[in-house]
Write a protein that binds this DNA or RNA. Sequence first.
DNA 1: ATACAACCTCCAGTTACTGTAGGAGCAAGC
DNA 2: GCTTGCTCCTACAGTAACTGGAGGTTGTAT
Lengths: 112, 112
Amino acid sequence: MAEAAHLAIGDLARLTGTNVNTIRFYEEGGLLPQAERTASGRRIYRDADAKRLAFIRQSRNLGFALDPVRELLTLADDANQSCEAVDRIARVHLAEIDRKIADLSALRAELD
Amino acid sequence: MAEAAHLAIGDLARLTGTNVNTIRFYEEGGLLPQAERTASGRRIYRDADAKRLAFIRQSRNLGFALDPVRELLTLADDANQSCEAVDRIARVHLAEIDRKIADLSALRAELD
DNA sequence: ATACAACCTCCAGTTACTGTAGGAGCAAGC
DNA sequence: GCTTGCTCCTACAGTAACTGGAGGTTGTAT
């Protein structure tokens, strides 16, 4: 019966390797939506939240600040954005990513 | 005559795109050596310092915390380290770097 | 019924900077 | 040689992005 329909904050933390306080911090900062609550006030999460949080953590781990991450998430959320705007912003980030990949490759070579 | 034998802190900052306060902060934290000083107490830097600082900034930009960076710098500095120790630590960082490259490539694909 | 872990809010502490106040040093122009 | 203005100095306060803890409540397993 225990169909994993939704997750407690601790489950989400374990799934994504994130501190529970950090999850609440992201909610407060608008990176994660205000979580649904149980009758007693506990936060409830779905798979979509886990995916979103994993994306945030991965981006952070790769050296992106929260503001760029927020920007990318907004792009993904808001389908009403003009294609041009999406394209322009995405291209900036793509360039940044390519630079990072190049830097990492250089670092790798240096270590080897 | 103006052979650029050494740099003031502001020159180093401009060269590496680093805040001058950050340079002093790194010195305090042992990431950069205690800088030589002029008679009046101003810090003096050489090209080697610029290289070291550039390495630190690049690593930070790629999402490494200061502790791993310190570790890598120590490896590079201390030639007395056993080859095994160097090898072991370097391999850990290489694995980390490869993971990051893979993550960035995935992120890139997602954006594209 | 009673542990006890996981949750809640709120707030203090940490890491890695970044900015600012107050004062001294240097280089260029008058 | 003096002033103007930029760079430097120390010291400390402020910010971003967490992380941990106190004090209290809830859910669950025995």
